[in-house]
């Protein structure tokens, strides 16, 4: 019968308050549709829950996820999106009908809510509380004519070089 393995605790350093985090994950979030906003948030959150250091760089349309006026109102595209099942399939020629994207968006929000997954803005706050680092891409901020105060207040603006420096030695996920 295997008892509690004390060597294993020392070997992994798990849960020791001052043990340095060993793994480091950098996520680049480049898409801002409702469906593409979740993968970086969910993966980042799962990594923090496993004690991994997390840095998320929001760039191009991904910047909407950390922009206050937009992140509670992300949408699902219904034109040219062949993946609308399991609810129903929206043929491309119908996807452009006014209200179609709103309807699909509302439906996806409701399904996500049923799984007890928080809305994007709340999820982002949760990630910040969990200790993930949140960055806004400087070039995108300039291109979209945004200011620091347009973003969640814990977002730090970085240029590509700074992010590359931070990501040294990290595993990287591009979304």
């Amino acid at each position: 019968m295997p008892g509690f393995n004390r060597e294993k605790v020392q070997a992994t350093g798990a849960a020791v308050a001052d043990a340095p985090a060993k793994r480091k994950l950098c996520i680049i979030a480049s898409k801002g549709s409702l469906d593409m906003a979740y993968p970086p948030l969910i993966l980042g959150n799962a990594a923090r829950a496993a004690g991994i250091e997390v840095h998320i760089f929001f760039t191009f349309w991904g910047l909407d996820i950390i922009t206050r006026k937009k992140n509670s109102n992300l949408h699902v595209a219904t034109v040219g999106n062949p993946n609308m099942h399991p609810w129903f399939h929206i043929p491309t020629f119908m996807g452009g009908i006014p209200g179609m994207s709103d309807m699909a968006t509302a439906m996806m929000r409701s399904e996500i809510g049923k799984l007890d997954v928080p809305p994007v803005a709340e999820f982002l706050d949760m990630l910040h509380d969990a200790g993930a680092h949140i960055y806004a891409c400087l070039m995108t901020v300039d291109m979209m004519k945004l200011k620091k105060e347009d973003m969640v207040d814990y977002a730090e603006i970085l240029d590509a070089n700074q992010f590359i420096e931070i990501s040294e030695g990290a595993q990287i996920i591009f979304v």
Partner: peptide, 8 residues
């Protein structure tokens, strides 16, 4: 619970 609260 530093190092992963759910698990720990």
């Amino acid at each position: 619970f530093p190092g992963g609260p759910g698990k720990i």
